[in-house]
Design a protein around this nucleic acid. Structure first.
Length: 546
RNA sequence: GCGCCCGUAGCUCAGCGGAUCAGAGUAUUGGCCUCCGAAGCCAAGGGUCGUGGGUUCGAAUCCCGCCGGGCGCGCCA
């Protein structure tokens, strides 16, 4: 069965070519009007081309509507209507709308998926927290976002790799080791011998205690470093596991050094002729690529700036065959975008200019007891992912963190989330799902049989609206994937659940008449399927009972 | 000072390749369980879309200025 939208686009195109032969290439946009009086689909085509056609929009709309093509699609759509300044509104035939139920039930978990991007390799890099402390709320937002974006891309047919980059080679790790060593020696923050900018969190004390208990030598800094990093990675793995996020690859920054990739990147940069020596350091002319100042590659002390392994790392992404890479990062790192891209361009390795893509999210502000909780690793006082999960549950945290645009500030009111956990939007959606499951149990028929049930009895406005909502799911998912915007799915699910709750309260589904009953159950089962599919994209469960 | 992002209902936020875009949730108020799950539904009040210009037949949406907020501006990562 064909998608009604593409039928309409085709027909509109044909009508346009007939009426305005010299219109040229025009993108034919159809939108779903919010106001049901404006039909199921609407086009502003006449307004777009009126000027070019030298007619006023309403006249042009008249002409387009009078075209003969509409007779050929009369099985799908009613005769088009003109409204307002020249909109053309379409109303689908009732049985055209009803088809969606069979399609949803037939495709099941695959409904909403597409093959457009068949097999193309994409990487989503996210979280990438330094192993210097537990994951905080900001990482939680990133984990929820990155995982959902990855799932969205998978839904469009991409072969997605979820990657976590460990900065395990830098000064921060050294600092971590020194902090643990200091604690092991009984030195407290602020006392003589405490490292500058040392990590003060309670977890450092625990690691020091465990290290000592294991009989590790207190002067062996390298051994302490390994122990601490391993311990914190275990902790982070626990956090991620509790959050239901899995990575395909953990990429170690240290491996870039041991495998000579950093060295190779520097050589390639020098070979590009875009470097120069100044003040005892080696610089790269990143200003050639839009940076506001040139960047140091090799410091005067001989060490590399972090920018070098960053470039080397992205080269490996390209070499590993990822034509498309999405990095999910906090806005506090946005200045690295220009720099990394500049470095990749300078290499002249044929990497596209906009490589990689970035999704930046603003940091999460946590409010508790009416006051902001400062997220400071060094001070050791901050809300961890696991705190949040304990307070409001995994599903709620994930849904909540993913239900806002990434680039807007996010106020997570802990007290609100705790005290009103029953009002959390995620329960509203899950409740609709559980409610339908409950009905299906009560009906006790075979759900599989519903996909062949006659649907003609479904003619109420609420039922038709629900079907239209179901039909909008695939395009919603496709758009969300294209824009890296999981929040669009969250809003969609809220809307669908709302539509269903309204229907449920207005009409009885398990009625006496078997034909009507089964048709309504088929509709409900289709709603259930779409709710489940959408929640799955967000990494949220779809419980059968609550 | 410069760069990027953001200012929409009391609060938290959608909408921003212009029109059919003034929306949702929450909070407040008033209704709905002898009947499929009331974690639900129905209804009401509530906004010059930060502000001033510009483009357009038409701007929350595009352009410019200003105000307010966030982030960044290291031979730190």
């Amino acid at each position: 069965m064909r998608d009604p939208k593409s039928i309409l686009v085709e027909a509109l195109g044909a009508a346009l070519r007939a009426e305005v032969p010299d219109a040229g290439e025009v993108a034919i946009l159809l939108e779903r009007p919010k106001n049901p009086e404006h039909g199921d689909w609407s086009s502003n085509l006449a307004l777009q081309v009126a000027k070019k056609a030298g007619k006023n929009p309403r006249e042009l709309a008249q002409a387009l509507c009078a075209s003969a093509v509409w007779a050929t699609v009369a099985g799908t759509v009613e005769a088009p209507q003109i409204a307002g300044p020249g909109f053309i509104n379409f109303r689908l035939k009732q049985d055209t709308k009803q088809d969606i139920i069979r399609r949803v039930l037939g495709e099941g978990a695959a409904f909403g998926r597409a093959r457009a991007a068949a097999g193309s390799k994409v990487m989503v890099e996210f979280v990438s927290a330094n192993p210097t402390g537990p994951l905080h709320v900001g990482h939680g937002r990133q984990a929820a976002l990155g995982d959902a974006i990855a799932a969205l891309l998978e839904s469009q047919g991409h072969a997605v790799t979820r990657e976590f980059y460990y900065n395990d080679a830098g000064a921060q790790i050294q600092n971590l080791a020194l902090s643990v060593q200091a604690r092991a020696r009984g030195i407290e923050p602020g006392q003589p011998g405490w490292p500058q900018d040392g990590y003060q969190g309670e977890y450092i004390v625990e690691i020091a205690r465990d290290y000592a208990a294991g009989g590790g030598g207190i002067d062996d800094l390298e051994s302490i470093r390994r122990f601490a990093v391993a311990a914190l990675r275990r902790e982070q793995d626990e956090d991620l596991k509790a959050f239901g996020v899995k990575f395909d690859v953990y990429y170690l920054e240290s491996s870039l050094y041991t495998e000579g990739k950093v060295e190779a990147a520097v050589k390639a940069l020098v070979a590009s002729g875009r470097t120069y020596e100044k003040d005892g350091a080696l610089w790269l002319r990143t200003t050639d690529y839009g940076d506001d100042k040139d960047r140091v590659v090799r410091k005067s002390d001989g060490g590399y700036t972090y920018f070098v392994p960053d470039v080397a790392y992205h080269v490996t992404k390209w070499q590993r065959g990822f034509a498309r890479v999405i990095n999910v990062q906090g806005t506090d790192h946005h200045s690295t975008i220009t720099r990394v891209r500049a470095g990749l361009q300078a290499l002249g390795a044929g990497i596209p200019e906009g490589y990689p893509d970035y999704v930046l999210h603003s940091l999460v502000k946590v409010v508790r007891g009416g006051e902001e909780v400062k997220i400071s690793k060094r001070a050791g006082s901050y809300v961890t992912v696991r705190d949040l999960i304990e307070w409001v549950g995994r599903d709620a945290v994930r849904f909540f963190l993913v239900s806002r645009r990434p680039d807007t500030d996010f106020v997570f009111d802990v007290d609100l989330a705790r005290s009103q956990s029953e009002d959390n939007p995620v329960y509203y959606v899950q409740y609709a799902h559980a409610r339908i499951c409950s009905m299906l149990r009560q009906w006790s028929g075979d759900p599989a049989s519903l996909s062949n049930v006659p649907l003609a009895p479904l003619s109420l406005a609420r039922e038709l609206a629900l079907m239209q909502q179901l039909a909008a799911f695939p395009e919603t998912v496709a758009a969300a994937a294209g824009e890296f915007a999981p929040h669009a799915v969250a809003f969609y699910l809220r809307g669908l659940a709302g539509e269903f709750h309204g229907y449920y309260n207005a009409e009885r589904i398990l009625v006496e008449d078997p034909g009507l009953r089964e048709a309504r159950l088929a509709l409900a089962a289709a709603v259930r399927q779409v709710l489940a599919n959408g929640l799955a994209l967000l990494g949220v469960g779809a419980p059968e009972k609550m």
